[in-house]
Nucleic acid binder design. Sequence first.
DNA 1: CGGGACGTTGATAAGTATCAACGCCCGTGG
DNA 2: CCACGGGCGTTGATACTTATCAACGTCCCG
Lengths: 262, 262
Amino acid sequence: MSWAVSPSGQVSCESCPIRHRAVCARCEADEFAQLESMKFYRTYEAGQTILFGGDPLEFVASVVSGVAMATRTLEDGRTQMVGLLLPSDFIGRPGRKFAPFTVSAATDVRLCCFRSKPFANLIEATPHIAQRLLEMTLDELDAAREWMLLLGRKTAREKIASFLAIIARRYAALAQSAEVGVNGVHLPAPQKLSFDLPLTRESMSDYLGLTIETVSRQISALKRDGVIALEGNRHVSVPNLDRLLAEAGDDSEDVLHDSAAE
Amino acid sequence: MSWAVSPSGQVSCESCPIRHRAVCARCEADEFAQLESMKFYRTYEAGQTILFGGDPLEFVASVVSGVAMATRTLEDGRTQMVGLLLPSDFIGRPGRKFAPFTVSAATDVRLCCFRSKPFANLIEATPHIAQRLLEMTLDELDAAREWMLLLGRKTAREKIASFLAIIARRYAALAQSAEVGVNGVHLPAPQKLSFDLPLTRESMSDYLGLTIETVSRQISALKRDGVIALEGNRHVSVPNLDRLLAEAGDDSEDVLHDSAAE
DNA sequence: CGGGACGTTGATAAGTATCAACGCCCGTGG
DNA sequence: CCACGGGCGTTGATACTTATCAACGTCCCG
């Protein structure tokens, strides 16, 4: 496995950009002290594999920066993304010995890692972490269910529109909790926003259960119809968010705001 | 909402059929005493709605017997199943106020219910329950990811074969933990098994992201090809499990045994 | 006997995949 | 400096899988 130890690694949890969203969000000062002593950083370049499906799971991690993908693959190579991991998302399952899917870096990625066993012990002893992990897992399950609806029942066009809305929403949530622009997201006025896609067309096709050609065609179609505008291949602007959400086909619930919960 | 209180409700957790798999699996005697005092049973007939998506969540529950379905629906009626709830599965999310999906009974169903708030308090105070809930949620997330692979990348024939394998596996796990036949599952010899489908063709189509006609055709095709045999519409026998698993297209991992975890 | 829920099968249509060609961008090496 | 090649993306022509529309069969219950 090829990974680089960060040269001048982030040290203080206090100033960590994902401090308030990650698995450690609810920790107290003394708990951070413990985490500080256990944690170590790893960085990966875009395209690198972080973890091969089936391999032993020696560490768990939070994504500090960048975007990673969890994927499952059939024998003949058909690939489905099953997780899109943005900053603050958690990789790994306490108690599990082998990775059930492959994790790779979509962009350059920095992880805040903990060795599995000490982390499992820590969880037993630290209800704040276990509670937060349960909460995050439940959120992820909600997201997985929305994703299943997309995969099973939406048209190609709806899938693309939904994906764009999901990315915009997740970046907005991140930016909000960091009080700072992330990945070039700007929300200058309600109903107008722009952002960079964190994925190639191929990765988008793996997310959506489509081919790369269909992804390309549907993006072109949304652009032609004025639902989105593109600068280069990656930068998307959305002149009218409601229009995009309508194209996504979701039952009216505003997907950019809180998802019908709470 | 129409539901019937069970007339001679199950009373003792000790003799509960889902005692060792449900959210209470790890509880001690004193904890059961608490649960006993809080719990109440509800029963639903096949086809009844247990919970409407968007409604306030007033209780959480374990499925004691029968099969329930969680579904999400688009504005125009397209429906995707996002959860298949067998005995011991848990319905509801602590801390959530509104149901993110509809839950309905596929067969007659009996639930062991707890009012949301007392249950949330109990979780705070009872690590055994919180731990078990985390474990079950992580298992459900694993299942959701396998399901996503199915929805996004498998052919109709593979979807049907996968579904049959999943049902067989889940019933086998249930039967094993209960040391008793469940829903007519029999495992007389390795490589030969039979079971009843808990779903109509329509519900299967909602599970698999197909139309009812495609489900029917692919079942007929698997029967014609000798992969399965049918007695009536619901009872399936599998003469050769490896053959079925091969049709399911999963990478070799034996889906009937433990799923590559632990 | 009639009607409705459920399931199967056939004919056809539609959406997406597949195969193929081409364009753009950028890094490398002659 | 320019040519080449590879990664990525777009577009077109065609094939194939699955959806749609329709008819019919079975079973059960009123």
